[in-house]
Nucleic acid binder design. Structure first.
Length: 745
DNA sequence: GAGTTTGAAACT
DNA sequence: CAGTTTCAAACTC
């Protein structure tokens, strides 16, 4: 318990620097030196229990920084958020670099020991869970999101971990040291598992108590659990394991590093879980699925980034929660948070920091698209992919995707989830396209696979800049609001934490020129009116500026619209547009998949697994992480939410809309529903508004995905405009909530 | 892996 | 605002 709080506190401190975080006196106090924690017997104990190793943490840190930035940054990139972004950027970088070294050296030993213990320590992990039963409850909020087959186990490990990790990344300074986080995470995971295991209800209560948005989530989660448990078990490979051992999850979850370890550990269910958890960070909700589905290994790299995103998402949630106060629940907090988040996001949004994604919008979009693909796979499995799409805007994507993944189980349980369908139809179409494309691409060329995987991570972006010094929008990393990382092949790169000042200054310059330079490029434009006028394109999302393609026919990634998985619009000046997502003409794409079809394909767990595997094999998990964004981390939480919504088919969107908790869902719904329309109507202009007004991150504005448009919740449309934006935010938020609870504790 | 194509970003 | 250049991703071989 203490450990967790401490870790959170550290994170918070850092976050505070960059952003307003939940400030609890405890946290600040705790936050102080990591060394203290490390020294503490508790810390040691945790370390021993958790497989997490310092090294891993380092990776995470890197990924986080990059990821978090990527996912969130993109969102943040929006002018409004910029300030925040900057801070985040810097922070992340700082974290990363410092963390890595520290963790690696110090923690490496621990990690080894831990690893050795992990297998055996599952028991210990269980013990940990025992330790913090109460905490688990608090954290559980996150868990519900996961909606693991065993809701409990999967959720616990992932959400907690992701959230914590996210927090740590965000908040934690370099010293914060991944290890502490990991430890915390592990502890959280354990706790969660216990809590979940013990009773979802308890968890719900705990969540509520924590002040998380979880109320709705929990309720949903409970439902989800019911649904998920059966479905998830099947769908996810590891699920069996996952479902079985909460402790395992915990262990994994606790260990950020586990993912890496998992690689070696793959055989053991625990390993999978760990990997998933780590990965989950990105995907948040999804991770479990991903890990289960795809090989955990595949996602490693992605995961890191995804983690970042998730972190961002988690942070958001935390912020929201903290800001809102424990009492507020998801709805209000989310809304308020969203704006805040948006502000915060600057870090990321674009930055996929969180999961990738979502990351500067331009990049974010790309990342999102990539993420979407991954998500699509997941979605397909679950059939809830649609929701994921919705979330995409930035880091959100990841979360969304995760949600969708989870949702599937629910849907399965529920039946072809109406909700998911409604929410995701449009998104699903887009995703389907993206996925299909990505899959094909991944299959076609290794490079593509790599990139996509990277991109998927999306958050995990890699650039190859040679002349821009990674300080121009040419650089995907920079554009996404993420620092360049090792995988980058850039020359004379200034987009590194070391050059924060330069990076920030450059960003400011660019933003001064174009305030929306870092905002998501893809926005939900959907005014019914506009759509009709524009093209009747099914997609609710449109590229902010439109493309100018002349030779690619808008059928290649050269086209930003296509890359973003959106149809061309009136704004486009393209020639010979053949954009499958929606032509300038208004003709729709062939690619669009029928929701029903998707559900079918995805519907079966096996199908889903297959998809995941393919991705994992070919691309690795990156796609999963993507989410983006986004981004990701978020994803899981969001996913959990989604699941919950799905879980209760009846509630589905309606509930979401109405209730605070539902708000998150509502965010999703908005796309489909009237709310979406409003948002869409806003178009580019809206984005700014959102950002400004809500502080909304571009992400929210991005809505991106929804292309198709069957709107489930049109009825709500009325006042949804804002809500929709909020809803979006909420989606992203979900991931945070988990963190918050934990952190708060 | 090298080279080409493409279109956004940046510049004038 | 339009035209041109620069740039790096996407793509092809």
């Amino acid at each position: 318990m203490k450990m967790i709080s401490v870790v959170n506190g550290e994170n918070d401190e850092e976050s505070e620097k960059g952003i307003v975080v939940m400030d609890t006196p405890e946290r600040t106090q705790i936050a102080n030196p990591l060394s203290k924690f490390e020294d503490s017997p508790v810390f040691n104990y945790i370390n021993s229990l958790s497989p997490i190793k310092p090294v891993k943490s380092m990776h995470f840190t890197q990924t986080f920084s990059s990821l978090s930035f990527a996912s969130l940054p993109s969102v943040f990139t929006s002018p409004h958020v910029s300030s925040l972004k900057d801070s985040k950027f810097l922070r992340r970088h700082q974290f990363l670099d410092p963390l890595k070294p520290e963790l690696t050296s110090e923690d490496a030993k621990k990690a080894e020991t831990i690893e050795g213990n992990l297998n055996t320590d599952q028991n210990s992990s269980k013990q940990q869970t025992d330790f913090n039963p109460s905490d688990s409850n608090n954290e559980t909020s996150a868990v519900p999101l996961n909606g693991c087959s065993n809701f409990e186990s999967s959720k616990l490990s992932y959400d907690p971990v992701s959230v914590n990790t996210m927090n740590t990344l965000k908040m934690v300074g370099p010293s914060a040291s991944s290890a502490p986080f990991i430890n915390n995470v592990s502890a959280d995971g354990s706790l969660r598992t216990e809590g979940e295991i013990e009773g979802i209800d308890a968890l719900h209560h705990g969540k509520e108590a924590t002040g998380c948005d979880w109320d709705s989530l929990i309720s949903d989660a409970s439902e989800l659990l019911n649904f998920n448990s059966p479905s998830e078990m099947v769908p996810y490979k590891g699920s069996g394991q996952n479902t079985l051992d909460c402790t395992d999850y915990k262990v994994d979850g606790t260990d950020n590093n586990p993912s890496e370890k998992n690689d070696g550990m793959n055989g053991a269910p625990e390993n999978h879980q760990t990997v998933d958890s780590t990965l989950n960070n990105f995907e948040v909700g999804e991770p479990v699925e991903d890990a289960d589905e795809g090989g955990p290994n595949v996602f490693r790299g992605m995961r890191r980034r995804c983690l970042v995103f998730e972190m961002s998402g988690s942070r958001r949630k935390h912020f929201e929660d903290s800001s809102n106060g424990s009492s507020l629940n998801t709805s209000e907090s989310n809304q308020t948070v969203l704006p805040n988040d948006n502000n915060l996001p600057p870090l990321s949004a674009g930055n996929d920091s969180s999961r990738c994604i979502l990351p500067g919008i331009g990049l974010h979009l790309n990342a999102i698209a990539s993420n979407l693909v991954d998500q699509k796979v997941k979605h397909e499995s679950s059939g809830s992919t649609r929701q994921l799409i919705i979330g995409h805007p930035s880091g959100i994507y990841g979360s969304m995707a995760l949600a969708t993944l989870d949702a599937p189980s629910l849907e399965n349980d529920m039946g072809p989830s109406q909700n998911s369908l409604l929410v995701a139809e449009d998104a699903s179409k887009a995703l389907n396209f993206v996925i299909s494309e990505e899959l094909s691409q991944s299959q076609t060329s290794p490079k593509k696979k790599r990139r996509r995987s990277d991109a998927d991570g999306e958050a995990c972006k890699r650039c190859n800049c040679k002349k821009s010094k990674c300080l121009k929008l040419y650089c995907e990393c920079f554009a996404a609001g993420v620092y360049c990382v090792e995988p980058c092949s850039c020359h004379d790169c200034f987009n590194k934490p070391i050059h924060e000042d330069t990076v920030l200054a450059t960003r400011k310059q660019i933003e001064s020129r174009n305030p929306l330079a870092f905002a998501p490029k893809v926005i939900k434009t959907v005014d019914p009116m506009q759509e009709d006028e524009l093209n009747n394109t099914p997609a609710s999302a449109r590229h902010k500026r439109g493309c100018n393609c002349k030779k690619s026919g808008c059928l290649k990634k050269y086209c930003e619209c296509y890359q973003g998985g959106v149809g061309c619009s009136i704004n486009c000046r393209c020639e010979g547009c053949k954009n499958t997502f929606g032509r300038k003409d208004g003709s729709e794409m062939d690619l669009e998949v029928n929701p029903a079809d998707e559900s079918e394909v995805i519907g079966s767990d096996g199908s889903l697994q297959m998809v995941l595997h393919s991705e994992a094999e070919g691309i690795s998990a990156t796609p999963i992480s993507a989410t983006p964004a986004s981004p990701s981390r978020f994803g899981r939480q969001s996913i959990a939410l989604v699941k919950s919504s799905k879980g209760k088919p009846p509630r589905s969107f309606l509930a979401i809309k109405g209730s605070s908790s539902s708000q998150r869902f509502g965010t999703l719904n908005p796309f489909k529903g009237v709310e979406n329309q409003q948002l869409q109507t806003v178009g580019e202009n809206e984005i700014p508004e959102i950002l400004e007004g809500n502080n909304g991150s571009p992400i929210s504005g991005v809505k991106s995905c929804s292309p198709n448009s069957k709107r489930v919740s049109p009825p709500h449309s009325g006042g949804m405009g804002q809500r929709s934006s909020r809803k979006l935010i909420l989606q992203s938020i979900p991931s945070f909530p988990c963190l918050t609870p934990n952190s708060k504790q």
